[in-house]
Write a protein that binds this DNA or RNA. Sequence first.
DNA 1: CCGCGTTTATGGCACGATCCATAGACCCGG
DNA 2: CCGGGTCTATGGATCGTGCCATAAACGCGG
Lengths: 347, 347
Amino acid sequence: MTTPRRPATMRDVAARAGVSRSLVSTVFRGVPGASPANRERILQAAADLGYRPDGRARQLRSSQRRVIGVTLTATQPFHVAMVEALHDATELRGYELSIALSTDTRTIARAADTLLAQRCAALVLIGPSAPDEEIVDLAEASGGIPVIAADRFLDAPGVDAVRIDDEAAMLQLVGHLAHLGHKDIWYADGAGYVSAEPRRRGFVSAMAVHGLSERGRVIPAGATLREGAAVALTMLDHGELPTAVVAYNDWVACGLIDVFTRGGVRVPEDVSIVGFDNIPESALPHLDFTTIEQRSDDLTSRVVEILVQRLAGAPSTGLQLMPPGPLVVRSSTSSPRPGGRLRSVAG
Amino acid sequence: MTTPRRPATMRDVAARAGVSRSLVSTVFRGVPGASPANRERILQAAADLGYRPDGRARQLRSSQRRVIGVTLTATQPFHVAMVEALHDATELRGYELSIALSTDTRTIARAADTLLAQRCAALVLIGPSAPDEEIVDLAEASGGIPVIAADRFLDAPGVDAVRIDDEAAMLQLVGHLAHLGHKDIWYADGAGYVSAEPRRRGFVSAMAVHGLSERGRVIPAGATLREGAAVALTMLDHGELPTAVVAYNDWVACGLIDVFTRGGVRVPEDVSIVGFDNIPESALPHLDFTTIEQRSDDLTSRVVEILVQRLAGAPSTGLQLMPPGPLVVRSSTSSPRPGGRLRSVAG
DNA sequence: CCGCGTTTATGGCACGATCCATAGACCCGG
DNA sequence: CCGGGTCTATGGATCGTGCCATAAACGCGG
């Protein structure tokens, strides 16, 4: 097979098969109207020429919109899983997915521009980064197609938003500790990370609910094992510990437990620790800490559901919060020492 | 602004601005030939109508191919970083990126089909999964456009492949241990994970180089902290330890060190441990283990370089191996105990 | 042999843009 | 007043396909 400078078109296939261009079209569209003999010859000719229908021309001509635009920041692994789920769901409904990456230097609006230029049928914006205002403006400029913000807390008219209820989850976690009798509860905060805000808000209001606002403390940490470890070290250095620490996520909890146990602070005897996410590592025998599940699968299927409904003509439903996953109680939490209060750790 | 059922076209803009369709075209292409007054009126009319050029029609008409197709498996974080780098590099050369995800159920060939249907100018296949044969077939069917396999070991005519030289990296790691005097060196293998094969090969041949084939052992592990911890546990259970363990990657090393130190096996006094990747966690004070850097940035920039050259007409260069990053020696490695041999660990 | 319905095949317009050839507008010196 | 050059603006062909209207081919009963 030689390599043609110009890719083969329907015209080329038609010429080689000795039929009209239209007949090639009917065969490749899979509609009836071609005799078996001609169908065979056309497919053979196409194979010989390495013909492949031009998607751009197809979409341009057929007035139906058959592309779903997806913007992705890909900070979380489950965001990629969400794209896969969207693939599966839309493919069997005859849609294609078009993916545009947005990064620190490349705004969602810019990524979406590419997609809107393709005249996509709907826009799915995955990820909580980027200011809300940008999403609202984008929805304005989208020409009335469905716009769905996945994993984002946004309450704007005309745009569907779905996100896990971080606040409620935090309420459960703090509630667990409070019921065990803890009063001095600190929170190793996610600092700049995106889900940090609702979780912090959840922590603060949960402490208020239990009348512990005075005893709580929010300490900037981060989202990694490293940052969790760093926070634990500064706590040890300052020589002051609460009876329980809530971590922004499981990695931070790993770091905390690591440093604490090595520093002679026993978990849960001296300090209880809870994580957030229920990653596999949280069940490791030597860690085995209490955490709450992030039901990202539920979030994903909800997004797919909304997309399908909106494509079918259903109106926007606004913001939807997914109920938090179950609390997974393990051996990192127990009641505090009798009369437990802020403890001074000898240097 | 009302929401039109049909998006505005150049014709609509032209009508509103009172000019011809062609003039709208010249304005939106950014070529000279329109008077300032008309340019202004056209842009105003376009803004009023929410006009956005149709990318499909544009690309169809202009015979130049201005799209780079990228398939992505997104198993490694740096794969996403690579897409970002490709964005930056191609954007200022007037190209657009089109991204197609490939998953377990969605082959690279299928993902690439979408891209080829868009008549992309080149194909960048990111990720080492999928059988080589599939890539070769794909290159065959690509109609002669440049095909670049990033992060893949593949030596096929006409397709450029780039990957970090895992084997050489492993040679350095084992060499480091051998020079310290280690002879009983085990390898916690990556099992099913994709880069596992070349690393294992590197380990085996490195042991051969140092005349230690008899003393080496390959133990199936995995790629996560959890799997590393599991391997360490079985080692302790079997009551037999080498003087040094090479981990498939840094997470596995974390798991090993964690379980060992808690189990009373001192690192590096009783056993030396090396990782692979130099993730930030490897520098944590309480871990601080020797590892080798994965210079994924170098890999990325090499891929970009090759793409740019091939777009400029340069011929395929075949397989390229990137030299391994520097060895980062930390406190998890030292000379073995005098006369160190396989050690029995009391239960 | 003719009329009629069904199956196949074809020609041509349209999708929304690019781009070239051409025409009008305008300025300027001769 | 006219010829010639530059700057603007326009019409129309074209990209590769979908799809509709129409034509050819064919079978069949009267």
